[in-house]
C-alpha cells in the first residue's frame, strides 16, 4: 500500500517559530520527567529496602552525575508544569488567538525561569540537599 503521510511533519515546520519551540520543549521535558520516574521509584525501593540498601543507593544518588540529573529534572519539571497549565487554559477555548498565544509563550518561559531559580536555590544552595 502507498505510504500515507503521518503527522508530525517535522521537515515542513519552520524550526525557529516560538509555537514549535514551546511545544517541542514541552514534549522533551515530558520524556525527561518519565525518565525521572525511574529515579523516583529506584529511590522509593531503596527506602523500602532497609538502612543498608538505602545507604548504598544514597551514595549513588548523591554522586556528581546525579547533580546534573537533578538540575535537568528541575528544569524539566518547572517548564512542563507551567507549559502544561498553558495547555489546560487552551483546552477551555481561551487564549488561542495568535497574539495571546505569543504572549502566553513568553509568560510560560518567564514563570518557568523564575521557578527554576527559586527551586534551584532551595535544592542546591539553601537546603544543600543535592
Amino acid at each position: 500500500m502507498r505510504e500515507r503521510p503521518l503527522s508530525p511533519h517535522l521537515t515542513v515546520y519552520k524550526m525557529s517559530r516560538y509555537t514549535l519551540a514551546t511545544s517541542f520543549f514541552n514534549r522533551i521535558t515530558g520524556v525527561l520527567l518519565s525518565v525521572g520516574l525511574i529515579v523516583l521509584v529506584y529511590w522509593l525501593m531503596a527506602v523500602a529496602g532497609g538502612t543498608r540498601a538505602y545507604e548504598n543507593a544514597h551514595e549513588i544518588l548523591s554522586g556528581g552525575i546525579f547533580k546534573l540529573v537533578y538540575a535537568g529534572l528541575l528544569v524539566a519539571f518547572c517548564y512542563h508544569l507551567v507549559a502544561g497549565i498553558r495547555h489546560l487554559v487552551w483546552d477551555t477555548g481561551r487564549g488561542l488567538e495568535r497574539a495571546q498565544s505569543k504572549r502566553s509563550a513568553a509568560i510560560v518561559v518567564a514563570i518557568s525561569i523564575a521557578l527554576i531559580l527559586l527551586l534551584g536555590y532551595w535544592l542546591f544552595l539553601a537546603g544543600g540537599r543535592a
Partner: peptide, 23 residues
Amino acid sequence: SIALVPLTIWFTVSILSLPSMDH
C-alpha cells in the same frame, strides 16, 4: 495533568523541606 499540579508541587516542597535525607 490536573491532578499532578498539586501532587507534584506537594512532593517537591515536602522533599525540599525534609531536614535531612538520611534513612
